[in-house]
Design a protein around this nucleic acid. Structure first.
Lengths: 189, 189
DNA sequence: GTCTATAGCTTGATAGAC
DNA sequence: GTCTATCAAGCTATAGAC
């Protein structure tokens, strides 16, 4: 990689933005070229496998983000509620206060390869497992912990859809604020 | 309309299925042609304005469904909880037990015209208003009624996203079952 | 009302110069 | 590592026969 026009980090971020916003099918190479400042042939130099290669890198990058900002923090020591508060803040930043769609949502639409959809499924399953773990640590039984984790993901994804359609991010803020109570709180859900 | 190969009702339903599943951009005329059994030129005879015309008809049809199966039933007489139970059952059928994506979600992705996105926004806003109305009838104050309505839509949309990604419809079933409690129940949310 | 045929553009992808 | 140029295939849309 001698003198790249754009760093690998910047590149993957800009590519990810296009896929996250548009979904796989509508994320055309022209759009990606425009977003990155690289011509199509240059994109093929960075991602020899074309679109499938690009989206695989995007999902891999997203998995790394979840690992660093969600999974690892949730496994640290300290009060479970405090760990969830930390993660909730990371998620708030990640989704830009609710104004950004979730890539796991948009990339789950038809259009990509089976491998892509399996990867997306795996990413959300990992998040579900991490949420289930912290809910169990917070005192919930196995079944209720799983249910709280599902509920947390439902409310995050649902409030992001609501924000995208209505342009109103307040429900997302409420969801994020209530995340600690939902996952490790004592009230019944 | 002399001897149409497919009835207007069937046609709009099949076109709607393609848009709902794929989103606007990925819903190509080839796919719609395949789904309806009509050649592209025939589709232009039925929808002179092309794709934009088709998706407008789909949203209009969806609005009519909401009017008949949700808004009107919610305004009938009887116990609010019973009306919500009726509507919850209609929604369960509409989304095929959670296995179908919501068109208001998929059509809110970028790609369509500004008119389309405004129409989609209006449809969800109408649903929000109807839910707010029944929540208020159930005894919630103005602000809490609105919050309950938002929460109901969040949970429906979120559980549908979860179902699409993970292929697990049980969270959607739980959401639908809890809809009466969420909208007109007495417990705090 | 439906069809075949086609126009003009965009897509994903490749070849080869610098 | 990036570029211009190009290809075949797909796209939306239209013309015109039946």
């Amino acid at each position: 990689m001698a003198h790249p026009k754009i760093s690998s980090e910047d590149l993957i971020g800009r590519v990810a933005d296009v896929f996250r916003t548009q979904g796989y099918q509508a994320a055309s190479l022209s759009r990606i070229s425009q977003a990155t400042g690289l011509e199509k042939a240059s994109l093929y130099h960075r991602f020899p496998g074309g679109k499938e290669d690009m989206v695989a890198a995007v999902v891999s990058n997203l998995n790394q983000w979840f690992q660093d900002q969600v999974f690892t923090p949730l496994e640290r020591s300290g009060k479970p509620a405090e760990r969830v508060r930390f993660v909730a803040q990371r998620l708030r930043e990640f989704y830009a206060d609710g104004s950004k769609s979730c890539a796991l949502d948009t990339l789950s639409l038809p259009g990509g390869s089976a491998a892509l959809h399996e990867a997306v499924r795996g990413s959300l399953a990992a998040l579900l497992q991490a949420f289930t773990g912290i809910a169990r640590e917070g005192g919930a039984s196995g079944a209720e912990a799983r249910e709280r984790a599902e509920q947390a993901i439902i409310e995050i994804q649902g409030s992001l859809v609501l924000a995208r359609v209505l342009g109103d991010c307040k429900p997302f803020h409420r969801t994020v604020d209530r995340l600690p109570e939902l996952l490790v709180g004592s009230r019944s859900i």
